[in-house]
């Protein structure tokens, strides 16, 4: 798409005092300027690059059929379009049309693209809810179904989680990736969120703020309502996982090197056992 030329021929007028620079020799130089401008912003740049060119490249590389088959695996064919969609670098309409074009080109049945189209639907759904709820996305949409009162959840993230030193290879891996890259696979987000809310008993809002600080696609509606879904204030029961589930969808990459793999893994249990341990006061689901 020759959007830059087609869209606007006008160039940006010359810089006045207070205008931010638009020319950099490289990313490091840009990062240095950003540190001067925003000294309070922690960390460095993400390896994921922003911009329309990067977005178009990612869009050209989508494989909706593979996405439909294996997207729940950490190594699956996920699109990584979310940061570009979140900031409107790509519109949802453009992505929808790219998927339909792929269907035509590939001559595959509609079912091959169904999951990816549905995922775009999730994005649209969250945005519609945000319009409806406004800042209400920060409040419990429904009572928790965990048997614990809202007041029993901690209001701060513990230091071991913030520094990715919980001792759990999976959770430390996810926390590091979040902090260093600003992107996490959706399944990893769910696991990490469930760990924070249910195993560490921390308010979902605290976890949601943490994600928004770091995620390049950090969108308060998608983010907060997904946290609420995990917490059970926007779903009929809390979301939990066990080791078998995590090991399967991560191809065992964390458990292999985890010091707690042999004994002491808090996720090593049946769903019934986890339900009884984590939510002893909850009613039957």
């Amino acid at each position: 798409m020759q959007w830059a030329g087609a869209l606007r021929m006008q160039s940006v007028d010359s810089l006045l005092p207070g205008d931010l620079p638009r020319q950099f020799a490289n990313r490091d130089e840009m990062a240095a300027i950003l540190r001067q401008l925003f000294p309070e912003a922690p960390g460095g740049l993400s390896p994921m690059q922003g911009g329309r060119r990067a977005a178009e490249k990612a869009l050209a590389g989508i494989d909706p059929a593979a996405y439909g088959r294996n997207r729940n695996h950490l190594g699956g064919a996920v699109t990584r379009l979310s940061p570009h969609i979140r900031h409107g670098v790509l519109s949802l309409v453009e992505v929808r049309e790219a998927v339909f074009d792929w269907l035509e080109r590939s001559k595959q049945p509609k079912a091959a693209a169904q999951k990816l189209i549905s995922e775009l639907g999730w994005r649209d759904y969250w945005q519609r809810l945000w319009r409806q709820l406004g800042d209400g996305i920060w409040r419990d949409q429904e009572p928790l179904k965990t048997g614990h009162s809202s007041a029993s959840y901690a209001a701060e993230l513990p230091a071991d989680l913030l520094s990715a030193h919980t001792g759990l290879a999976c959770m430390d891996g996810f926390a590091s990736e979040l902090i260093l890259t600003g992107w996490l696979h959706n399944h990893a987000r769910m696991w990490l969120a469930a760990y924070v809310v249910h195993w560490r008993r921390i308010q979902w809002q605290v976890g949601a703020r943490w994600f928004l600080q770091h995620l390049l696609d950090g969108d308060p509606a998608s983010n907060n309502l997904s946290w609420q879904w995990v917490a059970s204030s926007f779903s009929s029961k809390p979301y939990v996982f066990n080791r078998e589930n995590l090991e399967r969808f991560s191809s065992g990459r964390f458990c292999r090197d985890c010091a707690l793999a042999g004994a002491g893994c808090p996720f090593e249990a049946s769903y019934e056992q986890l339900q009884a341990d984590l939510f002893p006061g909850a009613g039957p689901c």
């Binding site: 922690p42 993400s46 922003g50 911009g51 940061p83």
Partner: peptide
């Protein structure tokens, strides 16, 4: 308390 990653991603998007 947005991280530099987020600001950098925005900045790169804006440069285009």
């Amino acid at each position: 308390r947005l991280s530099l990653k987020r600001l950098g991603f925005l900045y790169e998007s804006l440069l285009e």
